[in-house]
């Protein structure tokens, strides 16, 4: 099955809500940009019914170059994690899987 993309989302806003194509495209773009900007400023994003985008700071840890086997430390970093909400989890659990 093909994946849902920004352009599919904009098409749906055009068809369902009657936004013009330019507005629909802009809104979809802004939706993802606002979430990125919030996370960039270290603020988590909570979208009730869908899920939360949270931030975790990870300290330095030992790593390895998989090609050469050479040991190199992995620098401290901040990462995004997604915690699906109850409603989304319940809906996805019902999916029996057909692949």
């Amino acid at each position: 099955m093909t994946a849902l993309t920004k352009s599919d989302m904009a098409d749906m806003l055009f068809e369902e809500l009657g936004l013009n194509k330019r507005e629909a495209k802009e809104i979809v773009e802004m939706f993802f940009e606002e979430i990125r900007a919030s996370l960039e400023s270290n603020e988590q994003v909570k979208l009730s019914g869908f899920g939360n985008f949270e931030l975790r700071d990870k300290g330095e840890r030992p790593g390895r170059n998989p090609k050469t086997g050479e040991e190199i430390p992995i620098s401290p970093r901040r990462v995004v994690t997604f915690k699906p909400g109850q409603k989304l989890k319940a809906r996805v659990e019902k999916y029996a899987g057909t692949e």
């Binding site: 994946a3 849902l4 599919d8 989302m9 749906m12 806003l13 369902e16 809500l17 809104i27 979809v28 939706f31 979208l47 019914g49 869908f50 409603k87 989304l88 809906r91 996805v92 019902k94 999916y95």
Partner: peptide, 11 residues
């Protein structure tokens, strides 16, 4: 609508 489309896709 965008969130609903995303939930629909995943489910």
């Amino acid at each position: 609508s965008v969130l609903e489309q995303m939930s629909d896709a995943l489910s």
